[in-house]
Write a protein that binds this DNA or RNA. Structure first.
Lengths: 335, 335
DNA sequence: GTGAAAGCGCTAACAA
DNA sequence: TTGTTAGCGCTTTCAC
């Protein structure tokens, strides 16, 4: 590895001269700067990032902790985060909590030792269910900034990026009501998460507000141990009166659609389906699923922006919660 | 941030004593060790990783560069890599090339300055098409080890993890032939990649070997600018004689299946479909797609193992190419 | 315009 | 058993 020292020796100048020259200091003569830069280029010199970071107490690295990268939502969020971070000259260190509190805690601990300047994090399911978020607040206490996205907690005081889950589900339900649907079922496997609760409430409120809707709310809360497909298929098979489905997680909408096709239900004539997802999750169905689009790319980008603002002291002392707009995208599974 | 210096001052001992105590050196008295450790724990001391890395010239960090994280194959590979790396006490810095050579090169450059101990990389499409791999060899020349996975190149001398693409496609085609299929079409959008070529050759060889197969090979090479769905749909619509499909990329198989259902083709009675993918890509179709499973998790794990072996000097001078077994998984779209 | 020296936080050879 | 010192590669203040 080529170091400043090597360059200095070759050029018979001091290390500090070389350093300054490479940083275009106006203390150094143009001539020297040129000579130094020429040799640096020739020898393919690259400043050792560890040394610079150590010296400056600044790593230009963000720790990103996501619950499950096999979930397309998080994959896309990571994509957006990486793109935006790179744009600003930051690297990302990626950790996966796999929905467990222990791994989340572990990653936080392991990176909060000078490895990263801050964190972008979506809370693990286990953490959210137990509502045990001390490990996260511990990091905050050490003055390491964190931006929470999607899955957040009121018990944590930091910057956050969310979508209007309540409003989005409300709007989707309202749409089905306007279509004249009489039996709308909500399907999901994320009732325990902050976002799941909000979406469920949005659905409930919309039904409540509908004066001419006679059947009560009906929720199929998918059980973990059992096949989601079997549960959804049996729902559709057993009850022919269902004419609307709101799927509040990533995949239930697609499953419902596949089962509806299999059982020859006319979609959307006799049955409307709206899923929750980013635009291009499981995009190859025919007909195409109507969805509440989460603008995942914007979520990731906003998270990075918020964190960098915090790191560069461009933010007020108070914490920001940024809400990314959702959009109801009507494709082929709604009228 | 708590440092050794803080601990040393509080305990009125030297910094090196503290350092040694924390590392359980037998130069230090049990008593001192205990006192040091107690205070360290109390103050939540964490050794600064940058300093340790700088000192030891060892970062315990792996740079992972993948072409496209929205492709489920790479998401899963990343998942496996993160899991395995974490298990061995390594972090991963993730970079996305987005299939471009420039970003791939950039990431390599930016991390080869002491940030990582080595790389795990799958070659970007642009790099593979142009067969311009000097930037990768440059890194190798600097004695930074690289493990290539999935998309590899003969022009790069390093450890590699691949699957038997030729054999897998051969086996899949053979299976359809044994089913008695008379008109088997290959669909794909990755003919330009190393893996795509190998898979295509496997298909061709299988047809060639089949004495009683009268129609020639037929390949639908999906054009980039146009909709894959439209191209596949028109194939199926225009030619009713097609009774077998081998899809060599991640998603074409699912698209073909959806279109077949839409056009009321009996699957698998009148049309067999085999896709290429990991087990749980787009898993919610009904019927379920038969696939060549790539054992993506094993690919990721093997990549980490190979790299760590190299880093820890446990490997011979020569380079290893590890081939991960594929498996033809027959689900519902084959007889 | 250039260089010496201190120091970021840590490890490790050597001295006491 | 403990402490001193040098040094990883870099930046930056201060002196020349």
């Amino acid at each position: 590895m080529v170091t400043l020292k090597h360059l200095a020796e070759q050029l018979s100048v001091s290390i500090s001269t070389v350093s300054k020259a490479l940083n275009n200091s106006d203390e150094i003569s143009p001539d020297t700067i040129e000579r130094v830069k020429a040799l640096a280029k020739h020898l393919n010199y690259k400043p050792n990032k560890l040394a610079v970071s150590l010296k400056k107490s600044k790593t230009f690295t963000i720790g990103v902790i996501v619950p499950n990268i096999l979930n397309h939502f998080f994959a896309k969020a990571l994509y957006a985060i990486e793109m935006e971070a790179t744009k600003h000259g930051y690297n990302i260190i990626t950790c996966l909590s796999n929905e467990t509190r222990s791994k989340e805690d572990n990653s936080l601990q392991l990176l909060s030792n000078g490895s990263v300047d801050g964190f972008i994090l979506s809370i693990a399911e286990e953490t959210q269910i137990k509502d045990n978020i001390e490990h996260i607040n511990d990091i905050l206490k050490q003055n390491i900034p964190i931006v929470l996205f999607d899955r957040v907690s009121d018990l944590i005081a930091c910057d956050k990026v969310i979508i209007d889950d309540f409003g989005a589900a409300f709007e989707a339900t309202e749409y089905l009501l306007k279509e004249g649907r009489k039996h709308i079922v909500l399907i999901g496997d994320i009732e325990e998460l902050s976002v799941g609760k909000l979406r469920t409430n949005g659905y409930l409120k919309a039904l409540e507000d509908a004066s001419d809707y006679s059947s009560g709310p009906e929720i199929l809360s998918l059980k973990r141990g059992e096949s989601a497909e079997a549960q959804i298929e049996s729902l559709l098979r057993d009850d022919n009166s269902i004419d609307g489905i709101i799927a509040i997680d990533n995949v239930s909408g697609v499953i419902a659609l596949q089962k509806a096709i299999k059982h020859k239900r006319k979609v959307p004539k006799d049955l409307s389906i709206i899923g929750f997802s980013d635009e291009n999750v499981l995009q190859f169905t025919d007909p195409k699923l109507s969805t509440v689009s989460q603008h995942t790319f914007d979520i990731g980008r906003a998270s990075v922006e918020l964190l960098l603002a915090r790191l560069e002291d461009r933010t007020p002392k108070t914490h920001t919660t940024k809400t990314i707009k959702t959009k109801l995208i009507l494709r082929d599974t709604t009228l």
